[in-house]
Amino acid sequence: MTVVLREVRDQVMYLTLHGPETLNSMTPEAMTGFEEALDEAEADTSLRAVLITASGERAFSVGIDITFLGECFGDPQGVFLPYLDRFHAVLRRIELLPVPVVTAVNGLARAGGFEIILASDLVVVAEEAKIGDIHLQFGVPPGAGASQRAARKLGDQKAKALMLTSKWLDAATAVAWGLALEAVPRTHLMAAAEALVDTLRGLSRPGIAATKLTVAAAQDLSLADGLAYERKIFAKFLTSEGAAEGYLAFVEKREPRWEDADVSHLR
C-alpha cells in the first residue's frame, strides 16, 4: 500500500509517495494522502513551494496498484470511475495551487506517475529514470488527463508517440522534449530539486501566485486574451498586502521583507 508522507520545512511542503515494495503504485490511500496534503497546502499562507518525490531508487510511481486495478475492473462504475474522478481532481488542484509544484523523479514513472509529472510546474529527473504513458500496453487509453496535458505540453506528434507506441523516454529525452527541466545523477536529484525550491523561499507569495496563474493561462488562451488576463491578474496583485515591498526595499537600499499572505483574491 502506498501512502503520501508530508512535512513542511522552511516554506516548502515535502510530499513523498511511499510504497517502495509496490514501486510506489497508486492506491486509494495515496489519493487520500494527496487530498489531505493539498487541503493543508491551500490553507498554509507560509508556503512558497511543494516538492513531490518518492521512496526508493527503482520507481517514482508505476501507476495504479495492480491489486486495486482488479477491484476497479470488477466494478467500473462503483470503483474505477470514482477513483479516476479523485485523481483528476488532485491533478487539477496541483495545477491550480498558488505555489509551484516541483517534482523530483527518482526512477521509473509510468501511467499515473507520468500524469503527476505532466501536472507539475517544474520537473527534475534522475539520469537513471524512465518515463512513459504505457496505458496501451495494457489495452486501455489514458484516463486521468494525460492525453490532454501531454498534447499541450509536448505537442501532437510527441504525445501520440508516447501514447500510441508505448514509447519510453530516458532522462535526456525527457529534457529535450520539454517534459523535464534538467536531468542529474540520482545521487544529486534531491539537491537539484532543493536548489529550485530554495530560489522561491522568502519571495513574495502574491508575486509567485500571480506568475504561476498567468503562465499557466497561456496554454489555453489566445495571445490577446492572455494579455488581457495578465492585466487583470496584475491589477488584483496590486491590491495584495506588500505589493510595493520590492520597490520600497530597492529605493531604501535594504533587503525586502516578504510576509506570508493569502492569495485567494488572485483567482
Rank of each mutant, 00 (worst) to 15 (best):
residue 229 Y to K: 09
residue 223 L to A: 13
residue 210 A to F: 11
residue 214 T to G: 01
residue 213 L to C: 05
residue 217 A to I: 10
residue 216 A to Y: 12
residue 230 E to H: 14
residue 234 F to K: 01
residue 226 G to K: 01
residue 219 Q to V: 10
residue 205 R to T: 08
residue 208 I to E: 04
residue 230 E to P: 00
residue 225 D to S: 10
residue 214 T to C: 14
residue 229 Y to T: 03
residue 232 K to Y: 09
residue 233 I to W: 02
residue 206 P to Y: 06
residue 213 L to G: 00
residue 231 R to L: 06
residue 208 I to Y: 10
residue 230 E to Y: 13
residue 211 T to N: 12
residue 206 P to A: 08
residue 224 A to S: 06
residue 234 F to M: 01
residue 233 I to F: 04
residue 232 K to S: 09
residue 236 K to F: 00
residue 209 A to C: 13
residue 215 V to G: 01
residue 204 S to K: 01
residue 236 K to M: 04
residue 232 K to W: 04
residue 237 F to R: 00
residue 227 L to M: 11
residue 212 K to Y: 04
residue 213 L to Q: 02
residue 206 P to W: 09
residue 217 A to Y: 04
residue 237 F to K: 00
residue 210 A to Q: 10
residue 231 R to V: 07
residue 230 E to L: 14
residue 218 A to Y: 07
residue 206 P to E: 08
residue 234 F to S: 05
residue 229 Y to Q: 08
residue 205 R to L: 12
residue 226 G to M: 03
residue 212 K to Q: 09
residue 207 G to Y: 09
residue 220 D to S: 10
residue 207 G to V: 13
residue 231 R to N: 06
residue 205 R to S: 02
residue 211 T to Y: 14
residue 236 K to R: 15
residue 235 A to T: 08
residue 235 A to Y: 03
residue 204 S to L: 04
residue 208 I to D: 04
residue 213 L to V: 07
residue 233 I to H: 00
residue 222 S to C: 12
residue 215 V to A: 06
residue 221 L to W: 04
residue 226 G to E: 02
residue 204 S to T: 01
residue 235 A to S: 10
residue 223 L to P: 01
residue 207 G to E: 08
residue 228 A to S: 10
residue 227 L to Y: 04
residue 225 D to E: 14
residue 222 S to Q: 13
residue 207 G to C: 15
residue 228 A to D: 12
residue 237 F to G: 00
residue 224 A to Y: 02
residue 214 T to N: 07
residue 221 L to C: 02
residue 216 A to G: 15
residue 237 F to S: 00
residue 225 D to Y: 06
residue 218 A to W: 03
residue 220 D to W: 12
residue 211 T to V: 09
residue 233 I to C: 04
residue 206 P to L: 09
residue 212 K to G: 06
residue 213 L to I: 15
residue 216 A to I: 03
residue 224 A to K: 05
residue 225 D to T: 09
residue 228 A to T: 12
